[in-house]
């Protein structure tokens, strides 16, 4: 290419002038900017940290203390003399606390077998849409149960450790739109002591739970646990109920065939049979308190 120096200067000058006028036309328009896709983490898959008896995928928020009263009446099949079970009661009082966004711990005391229990629940994965899609949420819940009921047998002297049982649960949950959530809960129990040497110490079961939204403040829930290997003489736990939200409370009303409210008791040792009317009316009341304010509110 042969262009003389004399020619090249004007050409370059014109080019740069063009660029200059181009730059002046290049006004910034903030309104025309495209939105970046936002990662939306799915929340409120279930209304509270328990569905009926068992854990849900939800955790209490960081710095929040949740006082829970779980209450079950007697069996409907007890008849009019016991006012269809209302004369009797089984309870669990619990305190749950959110250490972080993903970790919560809780302790409880049940009237059934005078049990003490402690648990931790850790969120491992969250369901999300938008910038990053993930189809389900996953948590782990580990529970330790201590039976403090005095040993009545004089022939066997159990060790203190024999009073412990453990539950390990993986919680898979997915929210399908605003109106339906589904949860699967594979569970492993370990009994430190079982009643005969032939029985295994470990038991497996799978829970399936659902929530359907009826109105802004009322949800319908079901919870069923299928025992894969089972203790004879017990039934699978099945419960249906309603979650009702009122300001600072979540009020849960339900019917269930389980008496106990700790994992191994209701999943593995449910004595009631739905077909025979061995079902109980029950409720869970939850009241939350802000113990540690979010840092934005601390001053």
């Amino acid at each position: 290419m042969m262009i003389s120096n004399k020619k090249i200067f004007p050409i370059a000058f014109i080019v740069s002038c063009c660029m200059l006028s181009f730059a002046q036309a290049q006004n910034v328009d903030l309104f025309a900017e495209k939105d970046e896709p936002i990662r939306d983490i799915v929340t409120s898959t279930f209304k509270t940290t328990r569905i009926v008896n068992g854990h849900s995928i939800e955790n209490v928020g960081k710095g929040i203390l949740d006082f829970k009263i779980l209450h079950r009446f007697g069996q409907l099949s007890d008849g009019a003399y016991n006012l269809f079970g209302l004369d009797q009661a089984s309870m669990r009082l619990g305190l749950d606390y959110g250490i972080s966004k993903t970790l919560m711990v809780g302790v409880g005391r049940s009237t059934f077998e005078k049990q003490y229990d402690g648990f931790m629940k850790l969120r491992l994965l969250s369901q999300s849409t938008g910038g990053k899609n993930f189809p389900f949420a996953l948590s782990y819940a580990g529970t330790m149960i201590y039976k403090s009921l005095k040993n009545t047998s004089t022939t066997i002297k159990p060790y203190e450790t024999d009073r412990f049982t453990y539950a390990h649960q993986l919680i898979f949950a997915r929210k399908f739109g605003d109106y339906f959530s589904l949860q699967l809960t594979p569970t492993l129990f370990h009994y430190n002591l079982v009643s005969t040497s032939k029985l295994p110490n470990d038991f497996i079961s799978v829970g399936i739970s659902m929530r359907e939204r009826i109105s802004k403040r009322v949800n319908f829930t079901q919870e069923y646990y299928y025992r894969v290997n089972k203790l004879e003489g017990y039934y699978n736990s099945f419960s249906v109920g309603f979650d009702i939200e009122t300001g600072g409370h979540v009020f849960q009303l339900h019917v269930t065939n389980s008496t106990g409210m700790t994992e191994r008791t209701f999943i593995n040792e449910t004595t009631g049979e739905w077909g025979k009317g061995n079902i109980r009316f029950g409720f869970n009341v939850s009241r939350v308190f802000t113990v540690r304010k979010p840092k934005e509110f601390r001053k």
Binding site: I3, S4, N5, I8, F9, I11, A12, F13, V15, S16, C17, C18, M19, L20, F22, A23, Q24, Q26, V28
Partner: peptide, 20 residues
Amino acid sequence: SILKLAFVLALGIFSFSANA
């Protein structure tokens, strides 16, 4: 001449950013 061209172009680009 290429050097000159580059210089003038660079000037243009500079004025572009100064004017943004």
